[in-house]
Structure formats: C-alpha cells, structure tokens
Amino acid sequence: MEQPIDITNRTLLRKLLLSLDENAVPLWGKMKPRQMVEHLVDQVEWTNGKKTPTCDRPAEEAYQSKQYMVYTDAEIPKNVFLENLPDDFKYPDMETAIDQLMKELDDFDQYFKQPGTTAIHGGFGPMNHQEWLIWHGKHFTHHFKQFGLI
C-alpha cells in the first residue's frame, strides 16, 4: 500500500475535496460525494470528544484487529458496508460539509493535546493519537480512492 493520506496536511485535504464534483460517480460503492464527506465528518466526531464511542468486541479480538488494520499495510476493502447511508444531507452544500470536516479535524488535534488521551474505535478498542492518525489516514485514503481523488 502506498503511504496513506496525511490528515495533518489540511491544505492538501481541502484542495482534494474541493476538486471533487458533487455529481461524481464513485469508482465503487454507493456513496455520493457529499455523503462521503459527511461520513468523514461523522467518523472524526467519534475521535474528537464530541461523541462517546464504545467497542463491543472482546478486548483481545479488538486488539488483534487493531494490530492488523493499524500496524500493517492492510487496506480497507472496497465495498465494505458498515452502516446505512442517510437519505438527507446534514449540510447545505459540499463546501459547508468540507468546512465542517476541517473544523472537526482541528477539534481532533485539540482533543489529543492532553498526553495519554485515547478514543475508542468501535472495532479496535482504545487508540492513541498516533494510532488515530494512521487509521484516519487509511480511512480518508480509502474514500479518496473511491472517488479518484488520489
């Protein structure tokens, strides 16, 4: 796997997302471009203190999944389906959704300023800042590839 997107490079993230046509058809999957951006907003909110996540998997199973998905070159499979897509958009337009994603990422940075902070991943259990940087990078990369942004 090539290097995942660096989510700390907000200038590049914003530039790539703003280049996405709201009517673009994904290379795989059912998401529309704005659904993808709003999905990323939602996912980052679970890691910046705004939502309280839980992990319902046994600790050892979650740990093993984290070791594989975070610490190897494993990619998120295409067409993985974990949640229903909402019929309505939360934000009025693509640019507003992108702006919200940038805000949530800034809040993510602030949340992890306190040493020792963790946030729960629903399948991997507690993760520290570095683990979240890797995982969000893989997740963003997955969706950016889905829409041909990289």
Rank of each mutant, 00 (worst) to 15 (best):
M1N: 06
E2Y: 10
E2T: 07
E2L: 07
Q3E: 14
P4W: 03
I5Y: 04
I5N: 02
D6C: 12
T8H: 06
R10N: 03
R10E: 02
R10V: 04
T11F: 05
L12P: 03
L12N: 08
L13S: 06
L13E: 01
K15M: 06
L16V: 00
L16Y: 00
L17I: 00
L17N: 00
L20H: 08
N23D: 06
N23E: 07
N23Y: 13
N23W: 11
A24H: 05
V25F: 10
V25G: 02
V25Q: 14
W28C: 01
W28R: 05
G29Q: 02
G29D: 02
K30V: 12
M31G: 00
P33K: 05
P33N: 05
V37L: 07
E38C: 01
L40T: 07
L40M: 14
L40H: 10
V41K: 04
D42I: 02
D42F: 15
D42A: 11
Q43L: 15
V44Y: 08
V44H: 08
E45H: 15
K51R: 15
P53G: 14
T54G: 09
T54Q: 12
T54S: 12
C55R: 06
R57W: 15
P58S: 05
A59Q: 12
E61P: 00
Y63W: 12
Y63D: 04
Q64N: 14
Q64C: 10
Q64D: 13
S65Q: 15
S65K: 14
S65V: 09
K66M: 09
K66P: 04
Q67T: 09
Q67P: 14
Q67G: 10
Y68K: 11
M69A: 04
M69I: 10
V70M: 07
V70F: 10
V70D: 04
V70G: 02
Y71D: 05
T72D: 07
D73Q: 11
D73V: 04
A74H: 15
A74Y: 15
I76H: 06
K78Q: 09
N79F: 14
V80L: 12
E83R: 14
N84A: 13
L85K: 10
D87H: 13
D88I: 01
F89H: 15
F89P: 05
P92K: 09
P92S: 03
P92R: 05
E95T: 15
E95C: 13
T96F: 09
A97V: 01
I98H: 11
I98Y: 11
Q100T: 11
L101S: 02
K103L: 12
L105T: 03
L105I: 12
D106E: 11
D106V: 06
D106C: 05
D109W: 08
Q110F: 08
Y111T: 01
F112I: 01
K113E: 15
G116Y: 07
I120W: 15
I120R: 14
H121D: 11
G123Q: 06
G125V: 03
M127I: 04
N128Q: 04
E131C: 01
L133G: 03
I134D: 04
I134G: 00
W135D: 00
G137L: 08
K138H: 03
K138M: 04
F140C: 02
T141F: 02
H142Y: 10
F144W: 12
Q146W: 11
Q146H: 09
G148D: 06
L149G: 03
L149K: 07
